[in-house]
């Protein structure tokens, strides 16, 4: 018999996580689909279930010296409405599912779901976000880019949950996000592309490039990003073919019911090329 806990405090939630495997439900918009039963019947849970939506202390967006903190249970709609949230993250969230879903769904849930087609994790990586993972043993901070390790697999320990997401301040000159879905709204990404750079005296000082939905987890390559550093705009432009060729090796798209390997690869490289060409 699976146990179900409607936690009302973080402490209660962490205590419940202590024993056995647990499915954590925040907004429910992914779990309720994955565990769906026939109409009128209970969702099929094979593990204990922890409901976090009543943990009011996890509803917040606040700023401090480390950056912007978003509590795990804050809905996507509330994040979108908060102007302190990086614009690119708000734009990304606005393209996830529909208003109806975003009124329930959470950013933490989107990350923990670890779908290869997840959108927000791409932006979390781009912005060097950190996740605060908590358990009765204490808390640790991990880089968002290290969080997902496979299809629906994360580094989250059995007794841990995501308590908050922290976005450090960044001073990019330009940030870019493009989701390629099958229609204009309410669609799951065929692929996505996010990039950011900082120019200082016509030289690249910082570069981030992340592809979504073209690998089991967001595709990013630190050493390639480092290769941009110090290049002048002209030098960069001259090396576009090299970067496109190199990034082609970074992604590993597949054929599925939403698109083809070939389309994903070509469009991902088109987006990269276009982004690099537009650097001024």
């Amino acid at each position: 018999m699976v146990k179900k806990c409607i936690a009302t405090s973080l402490n209660e939630a962490l205590l419940f996580l202590k024993d056995g495997e647990v499915t954590i439900v925040s907004g429910g918009t992914d779990v309720m689909v994955q565990r769906r039963n026939v109409a009128g019947e209970l969702p099929l849970h094979d593990k204990n279930v922890l409901y976090l939506k009543n943990v009011k202390e996890l509803y917040y967006i606040k700023e401090d010296g480390d950056g912007l903190h978003i509590g795990a249970e804050t809905s996507m709609s509330d994040i979108i409405a908060d102007k302190r949230v990086p614009k690119i993250l708000r734009e990304c969230l606005e393209e996830i599912a529909s208003v109806n879903i975003r009124n329930s769904a959470t950013l933490a849930g989107n990350i923990a779901n670890a779908s290869p087609a997840g959108d927000s994790i791409v932006i979390d990586n781009l912005l060097d976000a950190k996740l605060k993972l908590s358990s009765v043993r204490g808390s640790r901070f991990v880089d968002a880019k290290d969080f997902v390790i496979g299809v629906r697999k994360t580094i989250l320990e059995k007794d841990e949950l995501i308590e908050e997401i922290v976005f450090p301040r960044r001073d990019y000159n330009h940030l870019y996000w493009k989701k390629v879905g099958s229609r204009k709204a309410d669609s799951i990404a065929k692929l996505s592309f996010a990039a950011a750079y900082k120019l200082n005296k016509n030289k690249i000082e910082k570069m981030r490039i992340v592809f979504g939905s073209v690998s089991i987890k967001p595709a990013q390559n630190k050493s390639l990003e480092d290769e941009f550093i110090g290049l002048s705009v002209d030098e960069l432009k001259a090396k576009i073919p090299y970067f496109v060729d190199s990034y082609r090796q970074v992604i590993s798209p597949i054929d599925d019911q939403r698109s083809t390997k070939k389309y994903r690869e070509i469009v991902a490289m088109n987006l990269l090329r276009e982004f690099l060409e537009n650097i001024k």
Binding site: G28, N54, N100
Partner: peptide
């Protein structure tokens, strides 16, 4: 606010 009632567990309605 508009929400999908097919995705809302009763725990979230409390």
């Amino acid at each position: 606010r508009s929400v999908n009632s097919c995705l809302l567990p009763m725990a979230n309605v409390i």
